[in-house]
Simulated assay, not measured.
Amino acid sequence: MSLEMLTDDIESTAADLGESLPVELDRETRTELALLTAALGPEETDELVRRAIHGLFQTTVDTGRLDFHLRSGYDVTYDEYLSGMTYDEMTGADQYPQLDDERRYQF
């Protein structure tokens, strides 16, 4: 997998999700959402769901779990995705040929 494949998968999934997402809630989740709605009083429960997704995303980034899964599945990190370049591309490491240790010091 690669950075390009990750970008394609994200764009494809975002297009599939569209503007709205019907979600079925189990009893526990419905009760928790009702409690949060009563306590926080948002205009719509959609706002709490958006906040929950942002919170989960931030926690996943902060703990390094997102990078772990991206590295496992796509061989990139979140920083590489944001910059649009891999670390090798950023540092120029992919521009130099591999060294041949046997011929390194021969003239």
Rank of each mutant, 00 (worst) to 15 (best):
S2Y: 11
L3D: 06
E4A: 12
E4S: 10
M5K: 11
M5D: 12
T7Y: 04
T7W: 03
T7E: 13
T7I: 07
D8S: 13
D9H: 13
E11V: 06
E11M: 09
E11W: 01
S12D: 13
T13I: 07
A14E: 06
D16C: 00
S20E: 14
L21Y: 07
L21D: 04
V23M: 12
V23E: 02
E24K: 04
L25F: 11
L25G: 01
L25C: 11
L25P: 02
D26Y: 07
D26H: 02
R30G: 09
R30A: 15
R30I: 03
E32M: 11
E32S: 08
E32V: 00
L35V: 14
L36P: 02
T37E: 12
T37S: 14
A38E: 13
A39C: 10
L40E: 12
G41N: 14
P42R: 05
E43P: 00
E44A: 11
T45M: 15
D46V: 14
E47Y: 09
L48W: 03
L48P: 01
V49W: 04
V49P: 00
V49S: 03
R50V: 09
R50I: 07
R51C: 02
R51H: 09
R51L: 09
A52K: 02
A52F: 00
A52R: 01
I53M: 12
H54C: 08
H54W: 14
G55F: 07
L56V: 11
L56G: 10
F57N: 07
V61R: 13
V61E: 07
D62S: 12
D62Y: 12
T63L: 10
G64Y: 01
G64W: 06
R65M: 08
R65Q: 14
L66V: 01
L66R: 00
L66F: 05
F68T: 10
F68D: 15
F68N: 09
H69D: 08
H69I: 02
H69L: 00
H69K: 06
H69M: 03
L70T: 01
R71N: 05
S72W: 05
S72Y: 01
G73Y: 01
G73S: 11
G73V: 02
Y74C: 02
D75N: 15
D75V: 04
V76L: 04
T77E: 01
T77L: 03
Y78Q: 09
D79L: 08
D79K: 02
D79M: 03
D79H: 08
Y81K: 05
Y81S: 03
Y81F: 15
Y81W: 15
L82Q: 12
G84I: 04
M85T: 02
T86V: 10
Y87A: 05
D88Y: 02
E89Y: 05
M90R: 09
T91S: 15
G92C: 09
G92L: 04
D94W: 12
D94T: 07
Q95W: 05
Y96V: 02
Y96D: 00
Y96S: 01
P97E: 15
P97C: 10
P97T: 06
P97M: 11
Q98N: 10
D100Y: 09
D100C: 13
D101A: 13
D101K: 09
Y105P: 05
F107V: 03
